[in-house]
Nucleic acid binder design. Structure first.
Length: 441
DNA sequence: CTAGGGATATTT
DNA sequence: AAATATCCCTAG
């Protein structure tokens, strides 16, 4: 469940320009922990806050707060503090002071108060904690501004300079950089993996043991999406704006370039192990987008369910999707009693149980919430699918991280994975355990 | 969730 | 055929 929470949160956060969602509120409401995923989410939300305040045109002490929070998060992530981050902080701080320099005389207005508040207290605090945001540039500004109290010439010069422009430039640069570092959303990553998996399945395509009738809703929707894209378009009404904007990719719209690069890198990394995927590389891009869009549609659907104001007249699709819910159907899943393999848990199964044990409901159609669509999206969880996950050899980086992890946490594979979610993104806890078993043999 | 046994694919 | 690496299943 928590995973779904994270995904939805990430989706909402990355789906920008949605005025109903305030990222920080969303995150605090969900009360996420401090694992890597969550850190990434928090960073995304801070970035969104930052860009929101930029679009509102406000560069103020709230911006300083955000930059400080961002630094903390990045440190927790063990990322480095970039120059643009430092510069953005420095020039924002200067801008915050500058706005109190409207009187001709430095001692007239609130200038000295601002100096005290921003430079002595706030930045003094940063210094005490050895913050990476305290740059030479910042110190230079501090001496200049403090000098300006007594030096009218200096005061005038600063007073007439256009600090705001520089601050905004650096802030924008920072945003761009950090969004690039965030890379593709986990939604996109999963979409990519799903696509590859499907590709692999199609290649094997003997259809093998595909006996289970459980319709994978997501697959279903892909096919629909692929075939009658146009029809779907008709029911999007006033959602159209948002959807159009989003079609470019799940991530941040302005960042296509960097995201592309990251995808490329990810793909290359994949390629060193996957080898046979190389030949599909060209079609992969298109397929990825398709899969990503498919997942996004699904989440938009969820959002519509949650928020009635965005709900559309969607009957054709709904009828298709949920017909199962209203008319109790005879369960056509005949368990082949071979082994303990039948944890197929269909909704049908549930209704069967209901009707047999509760005679009191006779004749009445019990109202039901739409049954949860099996969201079989995490490729690392057990899949029920006859297809084995493709073998992927361990990279030296992964092995190193595993060694370090065992040293730090012992054999708590889960902790090790959580401590390094980026490296172990494609490994389950069991994989870690298995690998360790190999290593010590 | 972890440990351990086993399946599968590849290499020796 | 044996050894090895990875992935999967399941008991506790």
């Amino acid at each position: 469940m928590e995973i779904i929470d994270k995904w939805v949160a990430e989706f909402l956060i990355r789906c920008q320009h949605n005025p109903r969602v305030s990222p920080t509120n969303l995150l605090s409401a969900l009360r996420f922990g401090d694992s890597g995923d969550c850190l990434k989410l928090k960073v995304s939300s801070v970035l969104l806050d930052l860009s929101d305040s930029l679009t509102r045109g406000s560069v103020d002490e709230g911006t300083l707060d955000l930059l400080e929070i961002l630094e903390k998060l990045l440190l927790q992530q063990r990322s480095v503090i970039t120059e643009s981050h430092k510069s953005a902080y420095c020039w924002t701080a200067a801008e915050c002071t500058l706005r109190f320099m409207w009187p001709l005389d430095p001692l007239d207005g609130l200038f000295t108060d601002a100096l005290e508040r921003i430079w002595t207290k706030r930045i003094g605090f940063l210094k005490e904690n050895g913050s990476g945001l305290v740059s030479d540039e910042l110190l230079k500004w501090e001496t200049d501004l403090k000098k300006a109290v007594e030096d009218p010439e200096m005061y005038q010069r600063i007073r007439e300079s256009n600090i705001r422009y520089t601050a905004i430039s650096f802030l924008n640069q920072l945003l761009k950089e950090q969004r690039g570092l965030l890379g593709s959303s986990s939604l996109e990553s999963v979409a990519q993996r799903r696509f590859r998996k499907r590709k692999a399945e199609n290649n094997v395509e003997g259809d093998g043991v595909r006996g289970n009738e459980v319709p994978n809703a997501v697959d279903e929707s892909t096919r629909r999406l692929a075939s009658d894209n146009t029809e779907r378009g008709t029911c999007e009404g006033d959602n159209e704006n948002r959807n159009n904007r989003d079609v470019d990719g799940v991530g941040c719209p302005e960042n296509d370039g960097i995201d592309k690069v990251n995808e490329q890198l990810a793909a290359e990394e994949e390629g060193t192990m996957g080898s046979q995927e190389q030949e599909h590389e060209s079609s992969l891009d298109k397929g990825d987008k398709m899969a990503a869009r498919e997942l996004k549609d699904y989440l938009l659907e969820i959002q519509r369910q949650i928020d009635p104001s965005t709900r559309q007249v969607q009957e054709p699709n709904n009828a298709f999707d949920h017909s199962v819910n209203v008319t109790p159907q005879p369960s056509k899943v005949n368990r082949t009693g071979t082994s303990g393999q039948d944890h197929i848990e269909t909704p049908d199964n549930a209704s069967e149980k209901g009707s047999s044990s509760q005679g009191t409901w006779s004749g009445r159609v019990r109202p039901r919430l739409s049954s949860p669509v099996p969201l079989n999206v995490s490729p690392l969880k057990k899949t029920n699918s006859p297809v084995r996950r493709p073998k992927k050899f361990w990279t030296p980086e992964e092995v190193e991280a595993l060694r370090a992890g065992v040293k730090e946490y012992g054999k708590s594979w889960k902790d090790i994975k959580n401590a390094n979610p980026a490296v172990f993104a494609e490994r389950t806890e069991v994989d870690l355990k298995d690998k360790w078993r190999n290593l010590v043999r």
